[in-house]
């Protein structure tokens, strides 16, 4: 029951947090900014609209948003928000989840290529490229997690007495991982410094350019999917910071979402104070994240033996 509730809450609040980012950015810019619930309005607006399809597109183009959204939701199903046991878990589910998200990216990319637009193709190429690097970084982190508590599932990482967090033994290493994961978060969710969701030049976009031709409910699905994905990563970072499960479920949830909000604030701050990287520096950026994670793994070899 708790699990269903936590999943439901996550689904509900996913579009809330991007609003926080906008608020933070507006604050830094000295502006008032859009309302906190702006993303909900956007979704509703999009869902009401009709469709426009390019004559170049085929079935794949319509499948894209569906798969993107489905894979993001699937990831949330397995996530132990605030240390509450998720709806589903099994040994190895992290591998499945990251591959499921890979499927989402696959369809995202081919849907973009389906439009025959050179700009969307460019975005697709970048997405595919950076994705390969981010994946390596993430799996390196999984190696560390496995070495820390012998688990291969998100629930295993973050629930129970062996939960991974800063306070666990060898938790100091997690600092490196948190930074690395935060960097991956920015890359995977197309935030500054990898991508600028607010940019207006298609040539410099990654994620936004790929969805140029999606419209109406399709676009809503993609947007919602990316909110979920962002929430997934932000929650991941939050869970690594502190083991919330030791509190009661309600308190844990509250604290957890507070931490998640902090992560979003951090994203907002990053976006406000950093410029977007040149495109050819992005691989180096993700590689840095990989290096941090790898470094943590190497250190763990020294610590655990």
């Amino acid at each position: 029951m708790e699990s269903i509730l936590s999943f439901g809450v996550a689904l509900l609040v996913a579009p809330l947090f991007p609003g926080i980012i906008l608020k933070v950015k507006a604050f830094f810019a000295g502006k008032k900014g859009p309302p906190l619930l702006i993303k909900y309005y956007t979704l509703v607006k999009l869902l009401r609209k009709g469709f426009v399809y390019s004559t170049s597109t085929s079935l794949v183009f319509r499948m894209g948003p569906i798969v993107v959204c489905a894979t993001a939701l699937m990831a949330l199903l397995f996530f132990p928000f605030g240390g509450v046991a998720p709806l589903l878990f099994f040994q190895g589910d992290v591998i499945v989840l990251f591959y499921v998200m890979g499927l989402g990216r696959f369809f995202m990319v081919i849907a973009a290529l389906d439009t025959a637009s050179p700009f969307e193709g460019m975005g697709a190429a970048r997405e595919a490229f950076f994705g390969t690097l981010a994946e390596a970084s993430i799996f390196t982190m999984l190696i560390l997690f496995y070495r820390m508590n012998g688990s291969l599932s998100l629930a295993g990482y973050f629930t129970g007495p062996e939960a991974i967090s800063q306070t666990a033994p060898a938790g100091a290493l997690l600092l490196l991982v948190i930074v690395a994961l935060f960097m991956v978060l920015l890359a995977e969710n197309s935030r500054v410094p990898v991508d600028d969701p607010a940019t207006h030049l298609e040539l410099t976009m990654i994620h936004e350019v790929m969805i140029l031709d999606h419209s109406g409910p399709d676009l809503a699905l993609i947007e919602y999917g990316s909110f979920c994905k962002l929430l997934f990563y932000a929650s991941f970072v939050a869970m690594l910071i502190y083991p919330f499960h030791q509190f009661g479920p309600v308190l844990a949830m509250a604290l957890f979402y507070g931490a998640v909000a902090l992560v979003y604030v951090a994203i907002g701050i990053t976006e406000s104070i950093m410029a977007r990287l040149k495109m050819n520096l992005v691989p180096k950026y993700i590689l840095t994240s990989f290096t941090l994670a790898f470094f943590a793994v190497i250190l763990s070899m020294g610590i655990s033996q």
Binding site: F106, I110, D114, A124, T132, L133, A134, A136
Partner: peptide, 21 residues
């Protein structure tokens, strides 16, 4: 992990360039 990522990139290329657009 790298193989998986690159393979996906490669097949998005093939599918996208050959069959789509």
């Amino acid at each position: 992990a790298v193989i998986g990522g690159l393979a996906a990139a490669c097949f998005t290329k093939v599918v996208g360039i050959v069959f789509l657009g």
